[in-house]
Each structure stands twice: as C-alpha cells, then as structure tokens.
C-alpha cells in the first residue's frame, strides 16, 4: 500500500514537474505582458524537434545541440512571437481576444510547418536520459532515470531563475518592469528590451520542457497540439500566474492528482479530474495559491 503510494507519488512528480516547467514559461510571459500565449506549447514542440535535428540528425554533441535548440526557440520568441504577432496586435491596441486568437492560429500554423519540415511521423527520442528498460529499483519502487533528470533540470532552473531575479541587475529590472512598466521606464529601464527578454525566457524555458518531454511523447506534433499545453496553463493558474515557482507547485499538484486518479478512479477520466481542478481554481481562487514574486 505504502509502496503504491510512493510509486505513484514519484511517477506523478516527474510529470508534474514538467507541467510546472511549462507553467513557469507561462508565468514569465504573463509577468511582463499580462497576456497568455496560446501558442505557448509549440515552443516545447519546436525545442524537441530542433534538439532532435541537431543531436540525432546532425550528430552534434548533446550539450551543444541542447543550447542551440533552446537558443533558436528563444530567437523565435523574440523575432516572430514578439516582433510580428505581439507587436502588430498591441501596436494597434488590440485586445486580449485578438491575441488569444492570433496565437492560437500561430500554433496551428507551426504544427503544419513542423509537419512540412519534419514529416508527421513521430521520431523516437534517443535514450540520453537513461533507458526506460532499466530503471533504478529501490526497495520495490522503480524510479526512471528520466525522472531524476527532470528533477535535476528543474532544480537547476529554479536556482538559476532565483539567482537571476534576485541577484542580477537585469533580473531586478525585469521584475521592476513586471510590477509597473511606467515606473520602470522612469527608472531608466529599457522596457522594450525587458519585454523581449521575457519572451525569450518564456519560450526558452518551454523549449527545455519540450526536450525533457520528448522521451515520453516522442518527438511528435503531439507535443505541440495535445493538451499538455493546457496543463501548463493550469499549473500556472493554480500557482498564481505571477509567481513562476508557484507554477511548479501547481504542476506537482496536477501531476500527483493525475497519477492518483488513474490509480484510484480510472485512467479514462484522468484529464477530466485535471480540468475540474483547473475550473475549480479559476472560480474559487482565481488569484492562485501564491503571491507575486
């Protein structure tokens, strides 16, 4: 019994952390723009495909492929998402509605673009995060190497972001911009640059999540079209949207709920429970669990 609870907790945690990392990307975007990007999850898909291309197709070393993939997605965030979509819509004082619709269409376009560039067939992801065939076994509980990698990446990301926001000048400036653009501008902070930075960080972080998700979902358009993205939004909303680390807690909550509901109720209704959780939070506690960072 205890063993099952532990096993479910560990499996749920790995997935939950990944939802959480996507949620962090959502928060980084919301912080400075007050908007939600419905093409958010396509950054994860692009990240996975770029990494696959660089590492598997072009045989670049893992680290270089990883950095290149994340950087390329961040560049897309700055040049296309911000440079074209955001700039056009906000430039004519378009509303949230327009942004929602435009990013949704961007997502669909990117899905189709991906199909053209890489074909619609999923690629198996190389076992660089350990093979699922020989997991760690500790007293009857199996732990995938992949889960440990996820945990490692998440911890590194949290430490890195925390350092960035609390210790570096740019991070502080970014936080000031998130608080109040006008004040930040008066303080001599380049608001435009900060917005660009937050687009890059949001898409970049999500790309990392995509690379980590690929062993589970394969390198496939499933990554960019499925409901993982909505779960990322849900994590961010539950965490409070203004606090990137809250999103991790939100993600964990979803991951664990999913795993336990599969175990105790039924796998078919897993997503229903997640979405009920989301709607419950939206209605009962729209400000989420955590305060502004």
């Amino acid at each position: 019994m205890l063993q099952m609870v532990l096993q479910n907790s560990i499996s749920g945690m790995a997935m939950g952390l990944l939802y959480g990392v996507i949620g962090i990307g959502v928060c980084l975007f919301w912080q400075t723009t007050g908007l939600i990007n419905f093409a958010h999850i396509s950054s994860a898909m692009l990240g996975a495909y770029f990494f696959y291309t660089f590492h598997v197709m072009w045989n670049l070393p893992i680290v270089i492929a990883f950095v290149l993939a994340v950087a390329l997605v961040a560049l897309y965030g700055i040049l296309i998402l911000r440079g074209v979509v955001y700039r056009q819509i906000m430039g004519r004082k378009g509303g949230r509605l327009e942004f929602i619709v435009a990013t949704m269409m961007l997502n669909i376009f990117l899905l189709n673009l991906t199909i053209v560039l890489w074909g619609g067939v999923p690629y198996p992801f190389p076992n660089i995060f350990g093979s699922p065939m020989n997991p760690l076994r500790i007293g009857g509980i199996t732990i995938q190497h992949h889960s440990l990698w996820v945990l490692g990446f998440t911890v590194a990301l949290v430490i890195g972001l925390n350092y960035f926001f609390k210790r570096t000048l740019t991070g502080k400036a970014l936080r000031a911009t998130a608080q109040n653009k006008d004040t930040a501008s008066l303080m001599g902070i380049g608001v435009e640059k900060m917005t660009a930075l937050s687009f890059a960080m949001s898409t970049g972080v999500t790309a990392i999540a995509g690379i980590l998700l690929a062993p589970i979902y394969f390198v496939s358009v499933e990554l960019g079209g499925g409901i993982i993205g909505i779960k990322g939004f849900a994590s961010a909303v539950i965490g409070g949207l203004t606090n990137p680390f809250g999103a991790l807690v939100g993600g964990l909550l979803i991951g664990l709920t999913e795993n336990f509901s599969v175990f105790y109720i039924s796998s078919s209704y897993r997503d229903v429970i997640t979405f009920v959780l989301l709607v419950f939070f939206l209605i009962a506690r729209p400000q989420g669990l955590f305060k502004k960072m």
Binding site: I36, I100, I230, V237, D271, V272, F275
Partner: peptide, 21 residues
C-alpha cells in the same frame, strides 16, 4: 465571474471534459 483568458481556459476545460465523457 471570469472573463478574458480565464474564461477561455474554462471553456477549453469544458470542451475537453465533454469530449472525454
């Protein structure tokens, strides 16, 4: 109670719940 993004997320959730059912 909700509008904008929050409402859109709620409607997405509704759509999924109906679909799963």
């Amino acid at each position: 109670k909700l509008s904008g993004f929050f409402l859109s997320l709620t409607t997405i959730a509704f759509g999924h719940i109906v679909w799963v059912i």
